[in-house]
């Protein structure tokens, strides 16, 4: 007998108490929980900005017109000069200046030699302050936002879902997904959180439009 048959056989024996007519959907699953923890009238974008910042990531809000300038400001602030450029990243968002842009394909040693990566995102989650990447256009394969020590992520306001359930519904599970909530961190020493282990130790997030600019 194969191990597959052995394990499945043991499971069926173990479940002798389950009526043979019971189907999985016959087991009631109460879903009384909320789809979103946003308060009525609460702005998901503002909450997202606040919650991302709670993880000690830096959040900037801007609009489409000033986006390239915001990117330039972030890169200048971090001193990030040599940058990975994901395939499909809109060229009009690249600020003019003395930055070196290294387009995909980039192997791992090449990535390791760069200062950082600028990506778009697939979604944001307001309540948890999470950005989600799905390796789509402008995001690159997963290694891009991982190996360099700095990640600048651009999220459009309309990509921000209020909470986890809506975000999951927007995402395509067949794509490789990375949920990012702040910079790399650990609580492994005395259960005390410190930022910065293997992933990017610095995370900047730029939220694009449409309303409530920091300095309108």
């Amino acid at each position: 007998m194969s191990s597959r048959d052995a394990v499945l056989g043991r499971i069926r024996t173990a479940l002798a108490d389950v009526p043979s007519g019971e189907a999985p959907e016959d087991v009631p699953v109460p879903r009384a929980y909320l789809r979103s923890h946003l308060e009525p009238g609460q702005d998901p974008v503002a909450l997202f900005a606040e919650r991302v910042a709670d993880y000690r990531a830096t959040v900037t809000r801007t609009d489409r017109a000033r986006l390239a300038a915001a990117v330039a400001a972030a890169l200048t602030r971090r001193g990030a000069r040599r940058l990975a450029l994901p395939a499909g990243f809109p060229s009009e968002l690249l600020p003019s200046g003395s930055w070196e842009w290294h387009p995909e394909p980039l192997n791992v040693p090449a990535l390791n030699a760069l200062d950082g990566t600028v990506t778009l995102a697939a979604a944001g989650i307001a309540v948890t302050g999470t950005i989600v990447l799905d390796a789509g256009p402008g995001q690159g394969r997963r290694a891009l936002s991982l190996v360099p020590d700095y990640h600048l992520c651009i999220v459009r306001a309309e990509q921000i879902a209020p909470d986890v359930p809506d975000a999951l519904a927007r995402l395509d599970p067949t794509r490789p997904l990375t949920f990012i909530s702040g910079p790399s961190a650990t609580s492994d020493i005395e259960l005390d959180r410190v930022e910065g282990v293997h992933g990017p130790r610095t995370l900047d997030v730029i939220i694009v439009g449409p309303t409530r600019l920091e300095h309108p």
Partner: peptide
């Protein structure tokens, strides 16, 4: 899970993958 384990609203990284993806991973 994150709220129960590390006491965070969300853990820094969650990865999901489905089989293999050409050119990624």
């Amino acid at each position: 899970l994150p709220r129960s384990s590390t006491g965070e609203r969300m853990n820094p990284y969650t990865s999901t993958w489905t089989g293999t993806t050409e050119g990624d991973g």
